[in-house]
Design a protein around this nucleic acid. Sequence first.
DNA 1: GTGGTCTAGACCACT
DNA 2: GTGGTCTAGACCACC
Lengths: 134, 134, 134, 134
Amino acid sequence: MIIKPNTSSGTPIYVQLKDQIKHAIETGALRPGEQLPGMRKLAEELVINPNTVARVYRELEQEGVIELRQGSGAFVAEQAKGSARADILRARPLVKALLVKLLHMGLGEEEIRRLFEAELIAARAENNTQASRK
Amino acid sequence: MIIKPNTSSGTPIYVQLKDQIKHAIETGALRPGEQLPGMRKLAEELVINPNTVARVYRELEQEGVIELRQGSGAFVAEQAKGSARADILRARPLVKALLVKLLHMGLGEEEIRRLFEAELIAARAENNTQASRK
Amino acid sequence: MIIKPNTSSGTPIYVQLKDQIKHAIETGALRPGEQLPGMRKLAEELVINPNTVARVYRELEQEGVIELRQGSGAFVAEQAKGSARADILRARPLVKALLVKLLHMGLGEEEIRRLFEAELIAARAENNTQASRK
Amino acid sequence: MIIKPNTSSGTPIYVQLKDQIKHAIETGALRPGEQLPGMRKLAEELVINPNTVARVYRELEQEGVIELRQGSGAFVAEQAKGSARADILRARPLVKALLVKLLHMGLGEEEIRRLFEAELIAARAENNTQASRK
DNA sequence: GTGGTCTAGACCACT
DNA sequence: GTGGTCTAGACCACC
């Protein structure tokens, strides 16, 4: 199930939508061969412009994640690279548990995002350092 | 220490920079009264346009997070709302530990971001449901 | 013999198919009075929608290239304008020779198409210039 | 120099434009690092919509052919794959000579296109056959 | 009815 | 003034 992208979050709508769909495929919520909602229908549901959905679908096709078949619809590619990834499914409850904890500690959503992003960058930097040391 | 914003991530540079500064204040890396790097110097360091930095500083001042003193520079506001938040400092190692774990499980950076964002939205939705039930 | 149109080339299927049939007539591969393959059969062979073939036949009839006889099928028009054109038959080996040469020089198919199209436009422009000078 | 795409040729405007730009780079008419015309300016020149040019530039960037720099413009990528290809430059006069010949033989532009396309497909088929025999 | 292209025009991000 | 996103709406291609 796709959530309405946040219109006032800096991140473009089409990026948010793309990420949601990729994530749905990674978790197996959308399975290879399954049909995606029609462009117009989805646009109406999310209260965004059909062209924006069209762009998302076009780019996802270009990345090999979905297939667009003229006249018949959009489908999750049979060969979609990261479909129903076991590691992501195992990771999910861990992430959820942590988020619940942080929210109970009184952190706000935006603060969590900032903290998370900062640590992600830091972790990447450390990995790179280790890698270049090897 | 401020990291070069990612130019090709969809999220605008100035949003990334603002978030980084806010986060530095929340963790106490930047303390009330402390001087921020000069706009030109920072712009040069991050290889971005000075106007972009100017915009960030201007907006942060408007939000009451920093103070711009004509001729002498930018300073973290004495009254900065969330300075050196204890809860965030306690949260930080938890986040870091989880990220390290996820990376070791083989998740990519983008996949982690998508997973995290999806769970954050889900958590918010649950909270709202609970709240409206009360 | 008709080749499966390229689904991912930008050019619509029905245009490709029309062009192929016209070309077959111009080279004499299809002769006036000769019967074209049945719509359903052709659609099946090319793995495209029968409606697409129907459209092609309809438009070709409108252009006077073929005749549709209710119940008995489609036939190359007796009066088909450019049937078995001698000049095109003479031109064919020249084109083929050049293409073989270009491919051996290491040019890719798309590069050849772009080069060819560009030179065709240039040639037309020159002709127009000459014509308007006269 | 970029020519106005043919609005009524079946092939979408944006595909034609993309091909023209790629070809200009392949022939060295556009060199790595060189700035492309602004989106709006080019759109005005070609009498097409700026969004169409935007799409072309975006896709070319995605293919690594050009670089888009916010606020400063579009530039041919320094690493553009097929810049000023010697083989294409050598091929050009051969193609031109043949086209002039065909036009003098009385062939029309569309007939030449069809002939060329058919022979290109045939040549590809032959190559594949040879390849699979090896 | 599905996707595909194109236009027109507004407003934002960035140099 | 450059590119970037989004909206609105028309018309075509294809199933």
